[in-house]
C-alpha cells in the first residue's frame, strides 16, 4: 500500500500504481513463503529422522541447513523426461496447476492484523475452493502419464479428496456459524475474547472439530497415513511415477505448500491466528506474525509426527473413516453449533 502511494506520488496512474505495488507484494510474499517451505521441509526430514533414531540430512551446510537448496538445484539441473505415450500438454500443465493452486490459496491468509494480500469477504470459501481444486493436478498427471500406476493413483486421489472435502466443508461451516463471517481476519478477530483468556475456538464447543479437521487435512493433502495416492509398496510412487526433474519439483513444492496452508488454516480456524495465547503484557508485546508462525510450526510438527509414527491406512478403512465417522460427526456438530449459537449463546 505504501508503495502504491509512493508510485502515485511520482505521478503514476492510480490503478497502475496499485497493480505494480500488489505485484511486488505478492512477489515478496511468495519468496518468503518459499524460503519458509525450504526450512520446514528440512525440519520435516529432521523430525522424521529423530523419530527413527537417525541423524537426518547433516552434510550440506552446517546441520544440513542447505540440504533443501542442494536438492532444489539437483532437480533443476536434471533432464526433463516426457514419456513417449504421454499426453504432452496435460502432462506438463498438471504440475503447474498443482503449484499455482497451492500458491493461490495463500493470497487470503492473514499473517497479522491487516497483513493480508487480499482481504476478501469470502476468504474461507476461497481457501476451501483452492484446496479442493488441488485434486486436478493429481488426476491430470495420472491420466496424462498414460501408465497404469499413475492412473490407479489418480482414481484413488479423486475418490479420497472428494470424500474428505465433505467433512472439511462441514467443519468450516461450524466455525463460520460461530464467527458469523466468512472473512478470515474477522474469524480471527472473533476469537480475541474480552478478558485475559482468549476465546480460541479450540476451547469452545467446537473442540472436537479440530481433530476432525486435522485428520481430514492429512487426507486432503495426501499425507501419511492417508498417502494411498503415492503408496510406494503398491503404486511405485503414484501419480508422479513418470515425472522427473523440475515438474517433479513442482509437485513436491505444491504438496508442501498445501500442507503448510492446511496448518495455517488449522491455526486460523481454531487457535486464533495471530492472537497471543494470553492477553497480558509479555505476550502482547510479541508481534502477531510470530504467534501465527509458531502455531503453523506446531501443526507442522504434528503433521511430521503423524507421518513418522502412523502406518498407512487400507483404502476401505480410509473411506469408512471419511464417510461413516467424520461425515456424521461433523454434520451432527453443525446442528449442535447452530443450536448453540441460536439458543444458548445469547443467554451466556
Amino acid at each position: 500500500m505504501q508503495l502504491a502511494n509512493f508510485l502515485s506520488g511520482l505521478g503514476w496512474n492510480h490503478s497502475l500504481a496499485w497493480f505494480v505495488s500488489q505485484f511486488v507484494l505478492i512477489l515478496i510474499f511468495d519468496v518468503v513463503l518459499l524460503v519458509m517451505i525450504a526450512y520446514l521441509l528440512l525440519a520435516d526430514r529432521k523430525i522424521w529422522a529423530a523419530v527413527q533414531m537417525r541423524r537426518g540430512p547433516n552434510v550440506v551446510g552446517p546441520f544440513g541447513l542447505l540440504q533443501t537448496f542442494a536438492d532444489l538445484f539437483k532437480f533443476l539441473f536434471k533432464e526433463v523426461i516426457i514419456p513417449a505415450g504421454a499426453n504432452k500438454v496435460i502432462f506438463m500443465i498438471a504440475p503447474l496447476i498443482t503449484v499455482t493452486l497451492a500458491f493461490a490459496g495463500w493470497a487470503v491468509v492473514p499473517m497479522q492484523e491487516h497483513w493480508v494480500v487480499s482481504d476478501i469477504n469470502v476468504g474461507i470459501l476461497y481457501l476451501f475452493a483452492m484446496s479442493s481444486l488441488g485434486v486436478y493436478g493429481i488426476i491430470m498427471a495420472g491420466w496424462a502419464s498414460n501408465s497404469k500406476y499413475p492412473f490407479l493413483s489418480a482414481l484413488r486421489a479423486a475418490a479420497q479428496m472428494v470424500s474428505y472435502e465433505v467433512s472439511i466443508g462441514f467443519v468450516i461451516i461450524t466455525v463460520l456459524l460461530f464467527a458469523g463471517s466468512l472473512n478470515l481476519s474477522d474469524i480471527v478477530r472473533a476469537q480475541a475474547g474480552t478478558g485475559i483468556l482468549p476465546h480460541w475456538y479450540v476451547f469452545s464447543i467446537l473442540f472436537p472439530m479440530l481433530p476432525i479437521f486435522f485428520v481430514s487435512a492429512l487426507a486432503e493433502t495426501n499425507r501419511p497415513p492417508f498417502d494411498l495416492v503415492e503408496a510406494e509398496s503398491e503404486l511405485v510412487a503414484g501419480f508422479f511415477v513418470e515425472y522427473s526433474s523440475t515438474p517433479f519439483l513442482l509437485f513436491f513444492l505444491g504438496e508442501y505448500l498445501s500442507i503448510v496452508l492446511m496448518c495455517a488454516m488449522c491455526s486460523i480456524l481454531f487457535l486464533g491466528g495471530w492472537l497471543p495465547p494470553l492477553n497480558i503484557a509479555p505476550f502482547t508485546w510479541v508481534p502477531g506474525i510470530i504467534w501465527f508462525l509458531l502455531k503453523i510450526c506446531f501443526f507442522f510438527f504434528m503433521f511430521a509426527m503423524v507421518k513418522a509414527m502412523v502406518p498407512r491406512y487400507r483404502y476401505d478403512q480410509l473411506m469408512r473413516l471419511g464417510w461413516k465417522v467424520f461425515l456424521p460427526t461433523s454434520l451432527l456438530w453443525v446442528v449442535l453449533t447452530a443450536g448453540w449459537v441460536l439458543f444458548v449463546r445469547p443467554h451466556l
Partner: peptide, 26 residues
C-alpha cells in the same frame, strides 16, 4: 457476486467435474 463465484468453483469444479472427469477418464 463473490459468494456465487466461490460456490460455483467449490460445487461444480471441485466436486461435480471431478466425478465427471473420473468417469470420462475410465
Amino acid at each position: 457476486a463473490e459468494f456465487l463465484a466461490m460456490i460455483l468453483i467449490v460445487v461444480y469444479v471441485g466436486a461435480v467435474a471431478v466425478l465427471f472427469l473420473f468417469v470420462v477418464m475410465m
